[in-house]
Every structure is written in structure tokens, then in C-alpha cells.
Computed example of a mutant assay.
Amino acid sequence: MTAAQADLLIDRPEVTDGAALWRIAKDSGTLDLNSSYSYLLWCRDFAGTSAVARGADGAPVGFVTGYVRPERPRTLLVWQVAVNAAYRGHGVAAALLDGLTARLGAGHGIASVETTITPGNTASERLFTSYAARHGAPVTREVLFDSGLFPDGPHQPEVLYRIGPLTPHSSH
């Protein structure tokens, strides 16, 4: 654990965190930015399957949003992961993923994780492949949504990463 991680609390998001999550996503420069309203709804309706990293003052400095797939109730789909620029490179995103999946593994029996990554997003590729390695899980990749499916202009394909089954004893 790095010094930055030691000073952070991994917590469930609250509705009052929605604006901060929107700003962190906006400032990331890599995420598809959703409406501010959607982050408020996410913090209300999917707080149980999401996590925030809080700094010493209690304000969010990073987040992971996710949901349990209705057709696969033991699978967590990770929607977005973002960390404030000042905290990047210190393992905050990894701590968020580990903390969230440990909580959901214990409470919901989560045995696998899915996410989509656009080609060339090496930071996300490293985050999720190292997560898989820490949890003793294989990774498969396939295009989930081809470029042509997006109606709002050019968009890279979204590649689905399936990680699992997770090794039960590897929860952190």
C-alpha cells in the first residue's frame, strides 16, 4: 500500500458525491462524460455496487461505478474508473477495484468482473490485467460494441474484458 492509499478511505458513494464524480470523470480526459444528472442517479441507485476513494477531508478523489448484471448475478460490470490527477499513479484505482470486489464477493457472491476498454487505453488495460493477475483469474477479450453501433459520430470499438472466475482467497 502506498502513502496515498494509506490516507484514503474506500467507501460507498452518496448522492452528495455525484457532482464530484462528474468532475473527476470530466477531468480524466479519457472517459465518456455522462450528464451530471446520471452521476447523481448512479450515486443513489448503484451506490451498493460502486465505490469512492475519499481524501483526508472526506471529498472523493477517485471512484469506480459498476452494477451487477441482471442476467449474470455473480458478475460485476465496471462502468467507469477515474482518479483525480493528483492521486494517479499511486494504486488508488487498484485499491478501489480490490475494495469493491471484496465487498461484493462477500455480500453478493461476485465471482467475475467485466468491463469495456477502447483499444489503445493502456492505463485501463494495465489496471484490469493486473487486477486479474492479483486475483488469479484468466482474462478473455472480445469486441462487445463495434464502432458502427454508435450513433453519435466516430467512436472506437468497446472491447469486453471478462475476468474470472476470481480466486476466493484472493479478496483484499
Rank of each mutant, 00 (worst) to 15 (best):
M1R: 09
M1K: 03
A4W: 01
Q5V: 13
Q5R: 12
A6M: 06
D7A: 01
I10S: 05
V15M: 09
D17I: 10
G18H: 08
G18S: 06
I24Y: 05
K26I: 03
D27N: 15
S28W: 04
T30I: 14
L31Q: 13
L31D: 06
D32S: 10
L33W: 03
N34S: 13
S36D: 05
S36E: 14
S38T: 14
L40R: 11
L41T: 13
L41W: 14
W42T: 15
D45M: 08
A47E: 10
G48N: 08
G48H: 09
G48W: 08
T49P: 01
T49W: 06
S50N: 02
A53T: 04
G55L: 05
A56M: 08
D57P: 09
V61H: 04
R72K: 10
R72V: 04
R74V: 13
W79G: 02
Q80H: 07
A82V: 05
A85S: 11
A86M: 04
H90R: 09
V92E: 01
A94F: 08
A94C: 11
L96K: 01
L97T: 00
D98E: 13
G99D: 03
A102N: 10
G107V: 11
G107Q: 12
I110D: 01
V113A: 08
T118A: 14
G120Y: 05
S124H: 01
R126M: 10
F128M: 11
T129I: 06
S130E: 07
R134E: 09
G136S: 01
P138A: 13
T140S: 15
R141L: 09
E142L: 10
V143W: 00
L144V: 04
L144M: 13
F145G: 00
P151I: 03
P151Y: 07
G153S: 02
P154K: 05
Q156R: 13
V159I: 15
Y161V: 02
I163N: 07
P165C: 07
L166C: 10
P168H: 09
H169Y: 05
S171M: 10
H172Y: 12
